[in-house]
Design a protein around this nucleic acid. Structure first.
Lengths: 226, 226
DNA sequence: TAACCCGGGATTGTTGACAATAATCGAGTT
DNA sequence: AACTCGATTATTGTCAACAATCCCGGGTTA
């Protein structure tokens, strides 16, 4: 438990979490119009908390809401997904640099350990893209928080990752280059361990750049449809 | 009117705007605990729309809310403000690069024209920091939207700028180097006009870096208190 | 004296009903 | 047959009352 503050969970929080995971997992299809009452019955909520959650999700960009016309999950075009990766490139580069300067030795050791477990997972799961994606998410998550930059972590974890994960579930994005990605992760951790912020930033940017190029190629080849 | 879509204004939107400007302008003091009913009477609202607006503002990081304990405006420490500028450095660098690649000639001409009016304003207003700050905001706003990167613009305009403006109103941040800032703006626009994305990115990063250093210096000298 | 416990009061969270608005479908006209 | 206009209907936006929870002051005890 990172925070020992036993925050009482309010219905609005519950609604928010439910909807967010539903969107990320693809239970709520992008573009589909959906009514408030249906959502209420689906998640056992009343409209008050639901509306509050909808407001939060809207301002995070996960869904759009037209007055008197209902809500619908955002549908991200291929171009927009690429733009998302461009943003990740710069922001996670910054995160890596600050993480190199600020992570504790213990955190770095833990991060290194998770990479070991990722390696085992990749060998065991042989193309189980789901676990790879989760491992990848875990890695980036740790670096974002390790940057000790509250707002940066908030923007990455609260905004960008959910949108990226939304498509990762559907597309198994990072499949195809699991070992390569792991190697890149390893080198980033090495740079962080040596407290070389500049190098960590460079490697992280290149890592995400490569991921973007990989998706771009697949889309052009028609292997991926968005 | 930028958007001809006559979006009907809902009370929640109204509440959101009211609260946001109140926070940015400093009418709502950071750290101060504030009750829902008081907010309602202050802005002539009922609690339903208000709560929705509060949810949105919370997820944008402008206020924090503890269940059953009320809401309070976030108070940003000096360190956190510096972190904000670090994020701006990278993100606005990206925005400038993409703006150089994608703005229309007309937009660039308009941008250049606004700089002329900023120059006149600076000469007239002689230290009227308020107008300078607004001019600065206008400049960065145009580049963010000019990047044609929806999410990037959303993050900059929706999240970061409000937090920065919140302190700019109080501190008149950019005062002290108005002409210098204007010159930097001019050079950035030149780079954009020449479609030199790389240079635009470099200049924008340096511009914001200088602004950060300027604030840092003032804080260390005790001229600014946060 | 200081720490702790415990009601009273106030504030927030939640609910269901009511009002306003836009999408929809049908009728009439061109 | 296609289009426009208007009433209907369903959905959203709004409200005010109810219930749950936490803060605060007074009293008690170590």
């Amino acid at each position: 438990m990172p925070e020992a503050i036993a925050q009482t969970y309010t219905r609005a929080d519950e609604a928010f979490d439910c909807l967010q995971t539903a969107i990320v997992k693809g239970d709520l299809v992008p573009g589909e119009k959906i009514g408030e009452v249906e959502l209420c019955s689906r998640f056992n909520l009343t409209r008050g908390p639901l509306r509050e959650a909808l407001g939060r999700l809207e301002s995070r960009g996960l869904l759009v809401r037209r007055p008197h016309a209902g809500v619908k999950v955002v549908s991200v075009s291929a171009d927009e997904l690429m733009e998302l990766y461009r943003i990740r490139e710069t922001m996670e580069g910054l995160a890596a640099r600050q993480a190199a300067e600020r992570m504790t030795d213990q955190e770095i050791a833990d991060l290194s350990a998770t990479l070991d477990s990722h390696e085992r997972m990749i060998e065991q799961a042989q193309g189980q893209a789901y676990y790879q994606a989760e491992g990848d998410y875990d890695f980036h998550h740790r670096i974002a928080t390790g940057s000790r930059n509250t707002k940066l972590a908030q923007m990455l974890l609260g905004d960008l990752y959910y949108m990226v994960r939304m498509y990762r579930y559907r597309l198994s994005t990072s499949s195809g280059r699991p070992h390569m990605a792991l190697g890149e992760h390893r080198r980033i951790v090495e740079a962080i361990a040596q407290r070389d912020g500049e190098l960590a930033e460079f490697l992280m940017k290149r890592h995400i750049h490569a991921a973007r190029k990989n998706i771009e190629k697949k889309i052009q080849q028609g292997e991926l449809t968005i």
